[in-house]
Computed example of a mutant assay.
Amino acid sequence: MKFLMIASFLPSVLNFRGKLIEQIHAQGFEIHILAPDLELFENERQKLENLGYKLHKVSMQRTGTNPISDVKTLFEIYKLIQKIKPDYVLSYTIKPVIYGTLAAWLAKVPRRYALITGLGYAFQNVETNNKRSIFQKIVHGLYQQALSHSHKVFFQNPDDLKLFQDLKLIKTNIPAVVVNGSGVNVADFNVLSLPLALDQKIKISFLLIARLLVDKGVREYAEAAKIIKDKYPDVEFNLVGWIDENPSAITQQELDQWVAKKTVKYWGKLTDVRPAIAECSVYVLPSYREGTPRTVLEAMAMGRGIITTDAPGCRETVIDGDNGFLVEVKSVESLVEAMEKFIKQPELIEKMGKRSRNIALTKYDVHQVNKHMMQEMELI
């Protein structure tokens, strides 16, 4: 039996789906992975091939809406699927879900699944504004067509599922399942001691890990950092990430200014985020919307209290006042207020961190999440 995963970014296969395909492989399935730009990720490619998986390159632009290029992508995926002859296909992220699912249907793959990991700029302001741009209408129409040919669609939070249903992007006869994000391997993210200041008290140190996009709340984080540091100069603000090729990316000039003014300590892009999490006492993600934010789960597994937004995907990870605080989307004032609670009541840092670890263990363990998905795909 053959299982094919279609992705738009090879490193995410290892980082976000690695344990899932490992468990599927353990069931005796031959694993195939289809993704673009394999030559750019030699390290990840080698690791996946060493695990016995077969990789296939496809032309696919992660961003951009060139119809000729996208038709070429659809045709290439179709030809590769005909050659591989998989029994199961799972696609995730926008272009693999749309073109991968359509190609799998055209190639008559017996079992076709789609995973909606987040909505991105194709759904920006859709809930607050009844008007949709021409671009959004096209993308939503493509989603509707593709998902109508899937056997089951996985969502990472109930809000995304409801939005797809409200927009009629998923038909009532197509089963939809909400899973607890991508999960986190709690064995790899152990609880580490909180960082200490020179006086041996807990150091107040905030951290944000994200692609440096506007809708990740990076600007709100930097603004809050300026306000807090004016009142509490010893408080630290760390930032991990990179400027992505995305319409909503912040500018290099903005980042350079934050670093020059020592508003944030910039770590750059990390392949292993654990050292950065270990150096923080509170993790912050002011995102406008997520599937289920993996970085939050990793910080929770390492015993850190969380500040995140009361937004789809984010709100599922925090019980307000228990393992952290929920703040208003796009509100610097709300973010500052939550940060000050940790500064004024440092005992919350350890208390909420312990609760985070407990929630990670009981709700987000990657093995439980993957078992749920495999059962729903009838792989076990």
Rank of each mutant, 00 (worst) to 15 (best):
H25N: 13
A360N: 01
P195N: 05
T295D: 05
N238P: 01
A249N: 13
G217P: 01
N323W: 00
N130R: 13
H56I: 06
I209W: 07
A187C: 03
E236A: 13
R111K: 15
L115H: 13
A187G: 00
V327L: 05
Q23L: 14
A260V: 08
V273D: 06
E378C: 09
K341D: 01
G313M: 06
I94D: 02
P286D: 10
G321M: 07
Q144K: 15
I77N: 04
L167G: 05
K131Y: 12
A260P: 00
G303V: 04
K171Q: 15
T295M: 11
E378H: 13
L213A: 09
H372S: 07
L161M: 14
S356F: 01
G241E: 10
L119G: 05
P86V: 09
K371N: 14
P312T: 09
M60D: 01
K265F: 12
P11V: 10
K137P: 10
E347Q: 14
K201S: 15
L102S: 04
L48Q: 04
P67M: 08
R274M: 06
V273M: 08
M60R: 01
D244M: 03
S148W: 04
L379A: 08
A360V: 07
V177Y: 06
K351N: 11
I134R: 10
V273A: 14
N185R: 09
Q257F: 01
Y283Q: 08
D230I: 11
S281I: 05
Q82W: 00
V296Y: 02
L379M: 07
V89K: 03
K57Q: 15
F342V: 06
L163V: 09
